[in-house]
C-alpha cells in the first residue's frame, strides 16, 4: 500500500509516494534526501530526529507519513536563510554547543522552537525546552550558553 503524501518542506511543495506507515524521518532522509534529520533511538526519546511540523516540534520517528499529509515541515536544512545562519546556529558554533554533531540538528530545532515561544528564556525554561533532546557529549552546559547567546542575538536584531 502506498499513499500520496503532499506537504511543504522547508518552503518547497513536495509530494511523496510512500507507504502511509513510513516514518516521516525516513521520508525526509530517503525520499527528500534531507539527511540532516538524524535517527538516534527510533522511539521518541533522544530527539535527534526533531523537526517542526505545523508550528510545533515533533519527533519525526514517531510520525507516520500519512499524518504529515497537508502539513508544513521545517527541518534543520531549512533553519538558515541561504548562507546566513540562524542566531541559534551561529551561537552553537561560537559557544561550543556542538561536539559530535549528531544531536545538534534536533537540538538546534528545539532551541529555535523554544526561542519562538519564549523570547528571553530563563535557565529553567532553557533546560525544560531542551529536555527531549539527549546530548551525550557536552553535558549541556555549552548548549545552555549557546541558547542564551542566541536569545541575546535575536533580541538585538530587529
Amino acid at each position: 500500500m502506498k499513499s500520496q503524501v503532499r506537504c511543504s518542506v522547508n518552503g518547497a511543495a513536495c509530494s511523496f509516494e510512500v507507504p502511509p506507515m513510513a516514518r516521516l524521518l525516513d521520508v525526509l532522509r530517503e525520499e527528500a534526501n534531507l539527511t540532516g534529520t538524524k535517527e538516534g533511538c527510533g522511539e521518541g526519546e533522544c530527539g535527534a530526529c526533531t523537526v517542526i511540523m505545523d508550528g510545533r516540534i515533533v519527533n519525526s520517528c514517531l510520525v507516520p507519513a500519512l499524518q504529515a499529509d497537508g502539513s508544513t515541515i521545517t527541518t534543520i536544512e531549512g533553519i538558515a536563510k541561504g548562507n546566513v545562519l540562524h542566531a541559534v546556529q551561529a551561537a552553537f558554533i561560537s559557544h561550543g554547543g556542538a561536539q559530535c554533531g549528531m544531536c545538534t540538528p534536533g537540538m538546534v530545532i528545539a532551541a529555535v522552537d523554544l526561542l519562538t515561544r519564549v523570547v528571553n528564556p530563563d535557565e529553567n525554561q532553557i533546560r525544560e525546552g531542551l529536555a527531549g533532546n539527549i546530548c551525550r557529549c557536552t553535558g549541556y552546559t555549552k548548549i545552555f550558553d549557546a541558547v542564551r547567546e542566541a536569545a541575546r542575538l535575536l533580541a538585538s536584531t530587529p
Binding site: T35, A98, G101
Partner: peptide, 17 residues
C-alpha cells in the same frame, strides 16, 4: 570556531547512514 561546526549546525555533515 570549530572547524566542522558550520556543517554540523546546518545538517550538512555526512555521517555513515
Amino acid at each position: 570556531p570549530r572547524k566542522e561546526g558550520p556543517d554540523k549546525v546546518t545538517g550538512r555533515a555526512r555521517y555513515i547512514d
